[in-house]
Design a protein around this nucleic acid. Structure first.
Length: 255
DNA sequence: AACCGACCCAACCGCTTGCTA
DNA sequence: TTAGCAAGCGGTTGGGTCGGT
């Protein structure tokens, strides 16, 4: 039953990595790929736990890492993603090429938190510090009533829906601890057609109109290639939206 | 020069999830 | 079906660095 332990903890090094260890790890991964972390340390001749090797590679040695300071655009993107996703650092990192979850987490705790505090914004809730707490409604799926459940369950991605779908489903074990407050809502321009509104990609709907990765602005009006989801034609699978996992674009928060 | 506190970040720890035997 | 493991994740820690006194 089960498998053998991943590593002999008693015979593994801990603490800072040496140059030699780094070189060994890099050489091994270049030759064999990332593969199985469990067997990697032995195969690479490292006295490290596989977990430690994985962390070192992902957070420091990976060749596609973008070292150096965060740009202002990255700052704002992190803030906006954090306001939507909370401390889901890996999800946030997935939207910042070359950045790791650990790096973003550290950056958040050392820079952005302070930046938001200096703006008078609570980093946890992204609301103004002096705003009354009563405006915030916390929805806990664990303790939700039947009536509430009808409202909070079923954020289903259907392009023609513009509000939260009400369905009679049950998610008794799902506790997202969502904090939903009256949304920051910028009313759409009267003249704008609904189809035009829908064709904005998520990065644009976040206000990142200058995003380099975004292509929707150039082709949104035609909704041509790749528009099988009926909405965006942006090449980005921003937040996995095109995969249909999450779609914040058409959410109208109605509390 | 020495000390001290604040800051930064790499690495570790413990937990959860998904997979395997 | 279930126990146990690997991988992945977020929170926390500890050591190095830097600036002020």
């Amino acid at each position: 039953m089960g498998r053998s332990p991943c590593c002999e903890k008693a015979h593994t090094n801990k603490g800072a990595w040496t140059k030699e260890e780094d070189d060994r790890l890099i050489a091994h991964i270049r030759a064999h790929g990332e593969g199985c972390w469990r067997s990697l340390p032995k195969a690479a001749g490292l006295l490290r736990c596989g977990k430690s090797c994985r962390l070192r590679w992902i957070n420091y040695l990976r060749p596609d890492l973008k070292r150096g300071n965060f740009t202002e655009e990255e700052d704002e993107l992190i803030i906006k993603l954090h306001s939507l996703l909370g401390n889901k650092w890996s999800l946030i990192a997935g939207r910042l090429p070359g950045r790791t979850d650990n790096e973003i987490k550290n950056y958040w705790n050392t820079h952005i938190r302070r930046k938001l505090l200096s703006r008078g914004v609570d980093p946890a809730t992204h609301r103004a510090m002096n705003e009354p707490v009563s405006d915030v409604k916390t929805i806990s799926f664990a303790s939700v009533t039947k009536e509430e459940e009808k409202i909070v369950v079923g954020y289903e991605c259907k392009e023609e829906k513009t509000s939260i779908i009400q369905r009679e489903e049950r998610c008794p074990d799902l506790n997202l601890e969502l904090q939903i407050s009256p949304p920051y809502y910028q009313p759409p321009q009267e003249s704008m057609k609904s189809s035009e509104r829908r064709s904005l990609c998520f990065s644009c709907s976040l206000g990142l109109l200058n995003s380099k990765d975004c292509t929707c602005s150039s082709s949104s009006s035609t909704s041509s290639g790749g528009g099988s989801d009926g909405g965006t034609v942006c090449g980005n699978d921003f937040l996995g939206l095109r995969s249909g996992i999450l779609d914040f674009r058409n959410w109208d928060m109605k509390i």
